[in-house]
Design a protein around this nucleic acid. Structure first.
Length: 195
DNA sequence: CCAGACGTTGTT
DNA sequence: GTCTGG
DNA sequence: CCAGACGTTGTT
DNA sequence: GTCTGG
């Protein structure tokens, strides 16, 4: 198990600056074998991403202004789960004349794969991460290049085994972290200054 | 041929 | 690195 | 994705 | 409204 940067940087990127603003947090399962950024990784650099759960926002369109309610999503068993992921390795291209003996530092990065929402997720969103069952982990990680990638595993998880709970809107700000993100404040509490 | 892209989600 | 668009 | 910025001159 | 940063 390794730590890696979320947001896959393809091996062919010329510089990290060029890649700034490019969204590779998610890889759509549809077309994943042909997309330039994903086809190499899906062939030979598949990984699992362990998580306790994840958040997704539901757009509430019952008011003029679009508002969002975040939900925390997990397995009913509260066990951790494994997202299907892809990884790559990138290093700054060597300039001409640059010593071949300078230390290479490789950036390890990954993306998670998304698929269409299952029934329970469709209540709040159109997409969801691909979650793999333990019995499928070995097949997903198999590095035998003679075999074609097991893309049949890239489908929505069983709704009956998942649970959603409204959670703390503070989670919408990336600076906020911690268990209290899972706690939903009393619903429909008007803002104190709304009088 | 060379230059430029190479990706996703959501929202209207 | 490899494909697409001009 | 959501939150937060969105600007200039001059000074250190 | 739209872009940037986290």
């Amino acid at each position: 198990m390794v730590l890696a940067r979320w947001g896959l940087v393809p091996f062919f990127a010329k510089s990290l600056a060029d890649f700034k603003g490019f969204s590779t947090f998610n890889a759509r399962a549809e077309g994943i074998t042909t997309a330039a950024t994903w086809r190499g990784p899906v062939k030979s650099r598949r990984c699992l991403v362990p998580v306790d759960g994840f958040y997704e926002w539901k757009a509430l369109d019952d008011s003029r202004k679009p508002k969002k309610q975040p939900f925390a999503i997990s397995l009913k068993t509260d066990e951790p789960m494994a997202f299907a992921g892809l990884w790559d390795a990138w290093k700054e291209p060597k300039l001409k004349g640059e010593s071949l003996h300078t230390a290479d530092t490789w950036l390890q990065s990954f993306s998670i794969i998304t698929t269409e929402a299952n029934e329970i997720m469709a209540n709040i969103h159109t997409r969801m991460p691909v979650i793999l069952r333990q019995r499928d982990w070995a097949e997903w990680l198999d590095r035998d290049l003679e075999k074609s990638p097991p893309i049949h595993l890239l489908r929505p998880y069983d709704s009956d085994e998942m649970q959603l709970a409204p959670c703390n809107p503070m989670v919408g700000n990336v600076k906020n972290n911690g268990a209290e993100m899972l706690e939903c404040p009393a619903p429909d509490t008007p803002p104190l200054n709304s009088a």
